[in-house]
Amino acid sequence: MLISPAYAQAAGGAGGFDIVSILPLILIFVVFYFLLIRPQQKRAKEHKAMIEAVRRGDTIVTGGGMIGKVIRVKEDGVVQVELAEGVRVNIVRGTIAEVRSRGEAGPDEPAKPAASGDGEKKGGMLSRLKK
């Protein structure tokens, strides 16, 4: 062989601890905390408070999308809901996705148009699809 491999090359300057090498990881964690973790904790706290405030007469939406009126709130984490006349079911509080207070749209009332999120007023995707 004309070219011999260099097995004994010295590794240059692999010395001490350098904070600059860890700085990107710290920065990524800070960004994740403020953009993902903190808002999720805030939403979970608001949802827990909303579920604990459920009372008789409230209109709720379950996680499965069923809308009903609360008939009875039991102490063991169960809520009795009337889905239609004479149709009552027991659901676990944790499955409540949304609480609509009295006076808002119920199962037989038409829902109010959403103020935002549809994108119709801003020329969003839904307004373009409807044309």
Rank of each mutant, 00 (worst) to 15 (best):
I67E: 04
K130G: 06
R55I: 14
L36T: 15
G68T: 03
R38Q: 11
A49P: 01
E46L: 15
V78Q: 07
E52I: 01
M1H: 12
G94R: 05
D76N: 15
P24Y: 11
L83Y: 05
E75D: 15
R102G: 13
V31Q: 09
V92H: 09
A53C: 05
L27F: 06
R88H: 11
G13Q: 09
V89K: 14
P39E: 09
V54A: 08
R72G: 00
K45S: 13
G123M: 13
V30Y: 01
D58Y: 03
L23N: 12
R72F: 04
I96F: 04
D18L: 10
R55M: 10
L126A: 12
P110S: 05
L36V: 15
I96S: 01
V87W: 01
S101W: 04
G12R: 12
M1Y: 11
M66V: 09
R56Q: 11
P107I: 11
Q80T: 15
S116Y: 07
G94Y: 00
Q41T: 07
G117E: 11
G68D: 01
A111C: 09
V89A: 15
A10H: 07
G106F: 00
F29H: 05
Q41M: 12
T59P: 00
P113G: 09
A6T: 11
L126Y: 08
K130C: 07
A105L: 07
K121T: 13
V70I: 15
D108V: 13
D58I: 03
K42N: 06
V92A: 10
M50D: 03
A11M: 12
V54E: 01
R72K: 14
S101P: 12
A6P: 02
V78M: 11
A44F: 06
K121W: 05
T95P: 00
E82N: 03
V70Q: 08
V61S: 04
F29Q: 11
I26F: 12
V70S: 09
V87F: 05
G86F: 06
I22W: 10
R128C: 08
V54Y: 03
D76A: 10
G12P: 14
V70F: 09
G119W: 00
Y7K: 12
V20W: 07
E109Y: 06
I3R: 09
V87G: 02
E104Y: 10
V54R: 02
H47F: 01
L25E: 02
I19Y: 06
L126S: 09
L83T: 07
S127M: 09
G77C: 04
V30K: 04
H47W: 00
M50W: 03
L25Y: 07
Y33M: 14
T62F: 04
N90V: 06
G16V: 09
K121V: 11
I71K: 04
K112W: 02
L23G: 06
